[in-house]
Write a protein that binds this DNA or RNA. Structure first.
Lengths: 200, 200
DNA sequence: ATGAGTAGGTAGACTGGTCTATCTACTCAT
DNA sequence: ATGAGTAGATAGACCAGTCTACCTACTCAT
């Protein structure tokens, strides 16, 4: 009775090349930059044929875009996990800061270098569509802050203003954390944010 | 007689290759990144022989380091000009923000892309000495803030804490400004900072 | 159940071009 | 005649991307 798929075992044994590629690309792109990482390095690290890269992605630029989206999703996963544990508006705001710290704490075998999306954007020239993806991500994060602030501040203008303040604070701390190679700055920013919200 | 130098006209007409190189490198590195800019592009834009590059700099990495220091100095110049016009501690703090906005307003023929030092650091791998130069610059900026805050806050611990808060705010706004392509975020951060200081 | 087709994988040669860096040979002002 | 510049050839590594040739697992019609 072949109506039941025996496939799962097989598909598991041969891991889709796309996943291996994306994972290797993420590691290398984060650690050594977009331009600093060659196609051959990625296929070698993924243990995959070069043909497989071009079967799954139209070009290196396409792989870069996929990396950008994957990193955004990765952060969202971290954030959602933190959000579940938050029981009040204040903790939900701080969950955004926690997710950033969590992202910084992921085991980076070649060292922590700050926000991967920002680092990627830094390599892209002014009009590049990839920069737009990153801009969007940062706006999403700010919107999340504003949303949770709605539970603490009645006036939408106040919500937006404080969300912006917190977004700048968080972003700046992440930059400095990347330069330091650890997440201390982000934790400091979290506590500044907590004070700011606590005063409401 | 040749005792009187006719040189000035000559030295002016034949501008030192080093300066032309540094200027071209600054433009290209900022707009297209460190790795994204080749040596040939730089010498061509500088209108200089390749040999002249290697007469004046040991390697491309050496040129990158010179670029990093030059950018730091450029910002310092902008800051000092703003500082001269400030007559009280509050305005001196805000002069730091103004200098960032001024840096953003320099005519970038290929578009504004945020802090050049940060963008450069984003391309350098974790242990690279260039990252240390950038880290140092950001710490200097924070120290400047703390220094001016001393005229507003008696407790050194309070000065340091607020300096950090303002430094994160400023840095984060610069990042977002770079993503947007204009300096609006930095101006917003300045006004948030003004409110924060005004409340003292 | 078998056998052909299909989808997606492997290894690696190859093209055309770019990268950093070195080097030769010439010019010119002091 | 020396030092700093010019133009440009050259070396050797590396780049993105294409391509041939082969392999393996799964699907499905017979």
């Amino acid at each position: 009775m072949t109506s039941k798929k025996t496939a799962p075992a097989n598909t598991a044994s041969r891991r889709p090349a796309r996943d291996a590629l994306l994972e290797a690309a993420a590691r290398r792109f984060y650690a050594f930059g977009l331009t600093g990482t060659g196609i051959d390095t990625i296929t070698a690290e993924a243990g995959v044929a070069k043909k497989s890269l071009y079967n799954n992605f139209a070009s290196k630029a396409d792989l870069v875009t996929a990396y950008l989206y994957a990193r955004h999703e990765e952060w969202l996963g971290l954030y959602r996990a933190r959000l579940e544990k938050a029981t009040n508006p204040k903790d939900r705001v701080l969950a955004v800061f926690d997710a950033y710290a969590d992202h910084a704490d992921l085991a980076y075998e070649h060292g922590f270098r700050g926000c991967g999306l920002l680092n990627a954007a830094a390599e892209l020239p002014a009009g590049d569509p990839g920069r737009e993806v990153v801009r969007k991500h940062k706006e999403d994060v700010e919107a999340l802050l504003a949303e949770h602030l709605a539970g603490l501040l009645p006036d939408p203008a106040d919500q937006a203003a404080l969300a912006r303040h917190l977004a700048f604070l968080l972003e700046g701390s992440m930059v400095r954390a990347g330069l330091d190679g650890d997440d201390n700055c982000v934790r400091e920013a979290r506590s500044i944010a907590a004070t700011l919200i606590g005063a409401l």
